[in-house]
Design a protein around this nucleic acid. Structure first.
Length: 333
DNA sequence: GTTCTAGAAC
DNA sequence: GTTCTAGAAC
């Protein structure tokens, strides 16, 4: 896949990466070096589509943003292609976009961007035999302080998924909207995560028809993962979301219901997949369809402390080892 | 999310 | 004595 770069025609700073399908907010601030008070800190939102080769430019600030001397208009969005010029505010701060083949971070012509960090990612053994969709590279989201004001520091453990999903070695499927990886610590024989390229921190950030379509697509991709799994006929699967996930970047769990895994170690692990803490994908989509947003019931975090109960026969077990022993009675092979 | 470990439970 | 959990640190 190509990588998109935003280049300051004034040479005010190094090119900024625009990761595929991720919304990047720019304005007055250190990334752009713009100090002009007429420029909002959140002046524009950019979303690159590296497959189609354009960037969508949305004007967030009150003062006008221009693409080729055409005013975008507050709250409006226009397409911008290579060769066109973006003025972040008024006729100032010109930028262009460049799509480049991602040859291990080959720099765009203007100035060298800093090399994105290559995150090490532990291997996860696993019994899946999924074809890797493509071996194209995908440039990591940011080797610098994020262009958005979000917490996206790569070092923070809760941002680990953002790095792992970009690693071609971890990807078992990808298309223009989503990527699938095997969970690094699978809690069952089969445990995949479906993640959108677009950076959506959690379910609270879900809005509207666009995200609804995305979630439907994520579920469909999850179903395809199950369909290609040789052991699927002998297993039951669920796809859903943790009500309160530990890891940032929204992810759909697709997990077989054997829960036969050494990585399943404690009550939190168990209850997060077998109580209402785990919300079926269908239910999330339905809630988004009906109410335009997704909310989590109060007291959901308490569900993690519930006694251990078998998800098949509902027998209560005192300890994790005894639960694991019990689970064997429900597994045929 | 995991790892580590003190101390509770047995 | 050992097993297991749960909370802190990362």
């Amino acid at each position: 896949m190509l990588t998109c770069w935003l280049i300051s025609e004034d040479g005010n700073h190094e090119p900024l990466p625009l990761p595929h399908y991720q919304r990047v907010t720019l304005g007055r601030g250190p990334e752009t070096t713009i100090k002009d008070k007429k420029c909002s800190r959140h002046q524009v939102e950019l979303k690159a589509d590296c497959n189609k080769g354009y960037v969508k430019v949305k004007q967030l600030g009150s003062n006008p943003t221009f693409v080729d001397s055409v005013e975008v208009g507050k709250g409006m969005e226009v397409k911008m292609e290579p060769g066109q010029q973006l003025h972040i505010v008024n006729q100032l701060y010109p930028y262009t976009v460049h799509f480049m083949e991602d040859l291990s971070g080959e720099p765009p012509p203007a100035k060298r961007p800093r090399e994105p960090p290559s995150m090490e990612a532990a291997d996860s053994k696993g019994a899946s035999n999924v074809k890797v969709a493509k071996q194209a590279n995908h440039t990591p989201s940011s080797g610098r302080e994020s262009a958005t004001s979000n917490n996206e520091k790569p070092g923070i453990w809760s941002n680990g998924l953002k790095a792992t999903m970009q690693d071609p070695k971890m990807q078992v499927y990808k298309d223009d909207k989503v990527v699938v990886i095997k969970d690094k610590y699978p809690k069952a024989r089969y445990h995949w995560l479906v993640l959108p390229w677009e950076s959506i921190p959690n379910m609270k950030a879900l809005r509207g028809e666009e995200h609804c379509d995305l979630l439907r697509h994520m579920q469909q991709v999850g179903q395809r993962m199950v369909a290609q799994c040789k052991d699927a006929p002998a297993l039951r699967f669920r796809s859903g979301y943790h009500a309160i996930p530990s890891m940032s970047h929204i992810h759909l769990h697709v997990i077989s219901q054997d829960f036969d895994s050494p990585a399943l170690k404690n009550k939190k692990h168990w209850n997060s997949f077998t109580t209402d803490y785990f919300i079926d994908s269908q239910d999330v989509i339905q809630m988004l369809e009906k109410t335009g947003k997704v909310t989590v019931k109060e007291g959901t975090s308490e569900l993690l402390k519930l006694p251990l109960r078998c998800h098949v026969c509902h027998k209560e077990l005192a300890t994790i080892p005894s639960l694991k022993e019990h689970l064997k009675t429900h597994i045929s092979v």
